[in-house]
Design a protein around this nucleic acid. Sequence first.
DNA 1: GCCAACGTTGGC
DNA 2: GCCAACGTTGGC
Length: 162
Amino acid sequence: MPRRTRKYWLLKSEPSEYSIDDLAKEGTGTWDGIRNYRARNIMRDEMAAGDLVLFYHSSCKPPGVAGVARITGEPFADPTQFDTASPYYDPKSTREQPRWIAVHVEFIERLADEVPLDVLKRDPELDGMGVRAKGNRLSVQPVEKVHFRRVLRLGNAKTRVR
DNA sequence: GCCAACGTTGGC
DNA sequence: GCCAACGTTGGC
């Protein structure tokens, strides 16, 4: 049985809510509160331990890729959907039939040079990258390996992807 | 199942 | 704060 090929992702977060520095501080974190079905389906069906993540800061100045993380463990039912005190509580979710998915992530590095969106948009090697598309609000996006590597280079990352 | 109205995202 | 681009909801 061949090992599953590692996949690459871009995950958006508003740094005022949860930033790469928060993840750096804790070392590991839970990517929860995703309440979009497309994003949910991607997390549930396609994410797996070992996948690499571009940590993207949105709704800030400037928006852009701020760091690198890794998915650890398998996707699981997002606990916040059961938590009545949480802003992400969903009364339609049950333990038997959870509606929303979370993943655990671990910190890899903060980019020496954040790669702002306008740089992502200008770089010809990143043609076709999802986050560049106008009106793309999806907070969980697949990233092609060549694009992932290019962003690492633009950010002077220590992380190497073979 | 259509689609209008409403809500949210997120760059600017 | 604006608003375009989506997503979701709910009446029909």
